[in-house]
Amino acid sequence: MLEIERKFLVKSDAFKNEAFSQSEIKQGYLNSNPSRAVRIRIHNDKGYLTIKGKSDESGTTRFEWEKEIDLTEANALLKLCEPGAISKTRYEVKAGEHIYEVDEFYDDNQGLWLAEIELKDANEAFIKPDWLGDEVTGDVRYYNSQLSKNPFTKW
């Protein structure tokens, strides 16, 4: 139940031509505390409840538990979330043996594009496509739970 991922800014929309999947996501936080964030997400037509623990010092590894929930329940729980729901389009892009999840944010986070790659080991090698920008792994400003409270357009 450990999530190991690295996070990057995206410097161009060239990834869109490489994407093999595109989906819509809306999510909110019942609790956005970095030690134990509790998220409700609607991903296309499915609902999810996710609990994330505190990241390690590098920001690459943390506990993550996720369970699919009924869509009606997910919609009801979104209404209980803290202010600052996140809306984004997620693109999946294959690069070598890995898949990048590239998020294009909307509303108060308009203009932000982030790419995440999940790894089996924090030191695992991976391909960095040309559209990938600076690494922001461990920079809490780019955690979705923090973007819901302190949006990108307000920086």
Rank of each mutant, 00 (worst) to 15 (best):
Q22D: 07
N44F: 03
A19N: 04
K26Q: 06
R62V: 01
G53N: 07
Y48M: 05
G28L: 10
W65G: 14
K16W: 00
K26S: 04
K46R: 14
S21N: 11
G47E: 06
H43P: 04
N44M: 13
I69A: 00
I40S: 00
N44P: 04
S35H: 09
H43T: 10
Y29S: 00
R39G: 01
G28A: 13
E57K: 12
T61E: 15
S23W: 05
E57T: 11
Q22P: 08
L30N: 03
R36P: 00
E24Q: 13
G53T: 10
K52R: 14
Q27G: 10
F63N: 08
Y48V: 01
V38D: 11
Y48Q: 10
N31Y: 09
Q27T: 01
G47F: 02
K67C: 12
A37H: 00
R41P: 02
S21K: 13
Q22H: 12
D56G: 03
Y48T: 06
R39W: 01
E68M: 07
S32D: 07
I51P: 02
K46D: 01
E66Q: 11
K16P: 08
K16G: 04
V38L: 10
I40M: 02
D56S: 02
V38M: 13
T61V: 15
E64K: 04
K54M: 15
N33W: 00
N31V: 09
I42W: 12
G47L: 07
A19S: 10
K54Q: 15
Y29Q: 06
Y29V: 05
F20G: 07
K26W: 09
N31G: 00
S55D: 13
N33Y: 01
S32F: 03
D45S: 08
L49Q: 01
H43C: 11
R41T: 08
D56H: 11
E18M: 11
L49A: 09
T50S: 03
S35A: 09
G59T: 07
T50Y: 02
G47W: 03
S32V: 03
A19L: 02
Q27M: 04
F20W: 00
I42Q: 15
R39V: 04
W65L: 13
S32K: 05
T50M: 06
S32R: 09
P34Y: 05
K54P: 11
D56M: 06
S58E: 08
R41S: 04
L30M: 03
S58R: 10
K46P: 02
T60I: 05
P34M: 01
H43G: 04
K54I: 15
E24Y: 10
F63G: 04
Q22R: 15
S35G: 12
T60V: 09
S35D: 08
S58D: 10
A37E: 02
T60E: 12
Y29K: 05
I40T: 08
S35R: 12
G59M: 09
R62G: 02
Q27D: 06
S58Q: 11
T61I: 13
S23P: 02
S35Q: 14
F20K: 08
I51L: 14
N31H: 04
T60K: 12
G28M: 01
K67I: 14
N31P: 01
E64C: 04
K16Q: 12
